[in-house]
Design a protein around this nucleic acid. Structure first.
Lengths: 201, 201
DNA sequence: ATATTTACTGACCGATCGGTAAGGAGGAAT
DNA sequence: ATTCCTCCTTACCGATCGGTCAGTAAATAT
């Protein structure tokens, strides 16, 4: 009797086959493509299957539900993003932490355009209202660390400062998404200059 | 023979009845509610009809399609928003134009929380990719006007500056949407302070 | 009193959605 | 040679979607 991999979530079972992994990765890739092109609402199991050259139930063989597919795709791009930004922040000095955060995120999302839409859609469309604090807290901590290292008093409202910077990043990469000619390097420079300005009020 | 109002778009025919107007307004109101609660994807003709206490075809009697309903609802909230912001900007001096733009928009969207989601969803989900320039150009012009009045050189990249400010506004009102206790008045003050900082580089 | 128009309702349509059931092709293990 | 397991297909399910159609009760016009 065939026991279908009893994976309720995206956690793989004991030993995912080579083919298993390959197909899963392929399905995730096509899902990212589809979300980038048609948005969250425009993605369907049939659409994913067609892109991957298989049938709809084949997708559901590898993932327990449509939500599992989309979640896996989202977590994939999120992991890559935080890896990139995390590395850039760690490589920078504490003084330059916020600037490194902003410019590395803008750079990553400018290069991996397909991932951008996926992340934006996921954040704005999180079925369970996500913990919004998780978005701005890391940046807020970088801000406080930078101020501390620079010998400044703590920001009385680092939450708002982080929201402003984070929102600016969103707007810049969204603009890049719709106008590939937009110069995000310059935009990142302008934003970091503005961040620097917050240290000398 | 009953001639169904031959309105393809949301443009009303020659003489919309009182009842016509009332129903239309009610349908639009319920649609805004629904979008605010469930997002663009979660709105359906049946849902709208149920909210309004009528049947699905009744909605289609007043509007030619689902898209027409949603468009009308979006244009309704957009009109109110631009009226509010436009009045605030006109009441302010040219020097304070950008700050008035930002704070009035934050104030309006903090008060009319239901409208916020509608606008955000519409902008991010515009079926035909909207002219992105329309979003930042008005603010960019306010920025240039403010600099001119202050005797400063024109911003070499007012587009990016406008995007940064606009993105910050988005983030602040989104945060307010999920945490009603968030102090947007203070956030607006902080943002206008940052805008002021751009005048002295 | 009669005819017409307005503002609907109930029944229905085809399409598409996420998901399930059953079974088969093909390689690996015995 | 046979059994088992992986990976997939065809066929189907109920639900919901946007939208149409025919008819009708109530108001309005004549």
């Amino acid at each position: 009797m065939a026991m279908p991999r009893t994976s309720k979530t995206s956690s793989e079972g004991a030993s995912p086959t080579f083919a298993q992994r390959h197909r899963r990765a392929q399905i995730i890739e096509k899902t990212i493509e589809l979300v980038a092109e048609k948005g969250y609402a425009g993605v369907s199991l049939s659409g994913i299957a067609e892109r991957a050259g298989i049938t709809k139930p084949a997708v559901l063989y590898h993932f327990s539900s449509k939500a599992a597919v989309v979640d896996a795709a989202y977590e994939h791009v999120l992991h890559e993003l935080v890896s990139h930004v995390g590395a850039a922040v760690e490589a920078a000095s504490a003084e330059e932490g916020p600037a490194a955060y902003a410019s590395s995120m803008i750079e990553y999302l400018s290069v991996n355009r397909r991932h951008t839409r996926m992340i934006i859609e996921a954040l704005s469309n999180s079925d369970a209202e996500r913990d919004t604090a998780a978005r701005w807290k890391p940046l807020a901590q970088l801000i406080q660390a930078a101020r501390r290292t620079r010998g400044l008093a703590p920001d009385p409202d680092s939450r708002t400062t982080a929201l402003i910077i984070g929102g600016a990043i969103d707007a810049i990469v969204t603009e890049k998404l719709q106008d590939p000619a937009y110069d995000t390097r310059n935009a990142a420079a302008q934003l970091t200059a503005l961040i620097d300005a917050t240290y000398t009020p």
